[in-house]
Computed example of a mutant assay.
Amino acid sequence: MAANLRLTPAAAAELGRQAAVAGTPGQMHLELLPGDCADHVIQIRPGHLAGVAIARADGVTLHAPKSQLKLLQGLCLDYRGDLSGGGFLIRSGDGISPCACGSAFSLR
Rank of each mutant, 00 (worst) to 15 (best):
R6H: 05
P65A: 04
S106V: 07
L83R: 13
E14R: 03
G59T: 06
G23S: 05
D36E: 14
R80V: 13
A100Y: 10
T61M: 05
G95C: 04
A3C: 14
G95S: 05
K70L: 14
A55T: 06
C76S: 14
L5S: 02
G95F: 03
G102D: 06
A2D: 09
L49R: 11
T61A: 03
R108Q: 15
G74V: 01
G87Q: 02
A20S: 13
P25D: 12
A19R: 00
G59Q: 13
L69K: 04
T61K: 12
D94I: 08
G95A: 11
G86D: 07
A53Y: 10
G51M: 11
A64G: 07
L30C: 02
G85H: 03
A2R: 13
C37I: 10
Q27M: 06
C99Q: 03
A50C: 12
L49H: 07
C76Y: 07
D36S: 08
L7P: 01
G23I: 09
N4F: 02
R91W: 11
A38V: 01
P65T: 05
I54D: 00
L49G: 04
A55P: 01
H40G: 06
R108Y: 09
L75Q: 04
C99L: 08
G74P: 02
D39L: 09
S103L: 12
K66T: 06
T24V: 08
N4Q: 10
G102T: 04
V21R: 08
Q27K: 11
I54M: 12
A2H: 14
L72V: 01
T61P: 02
S97Y: 13
G74F: 00
L32Y: 00
G16S: 09
G74I: 00
T24G: 11
A3Q: 02
R91M: 11
M28D: 00
L107N: 12
C76I: 15
M28L: 06
S67L: 15
D58Y: 03
D82I: 08
R45V: 11
S84H: 13
P25F: 12
L7A: 00
K70E: 14
A100W: 13
K66H: 08
A19L: 13
G35T: 00
P98D: 03
L15E: 03
R6W: 13
C37F: 07
N4E: 10
R80S: 05
P46N: 12
G59E: 01
L72C: 02
H48M: 10
T24K: 13
V60E: 05
V21S: 11
R45H: 11
S92E: 14
L7R: 00
S103P: 01
Y79R: 00
C37E: 15
F88M: 05
A55W: 09
K66I: 07
A100P: 06
G86K: 04
A13G: 11
A10V: 06
P34S: 08
I44T: 02
A38R: 00
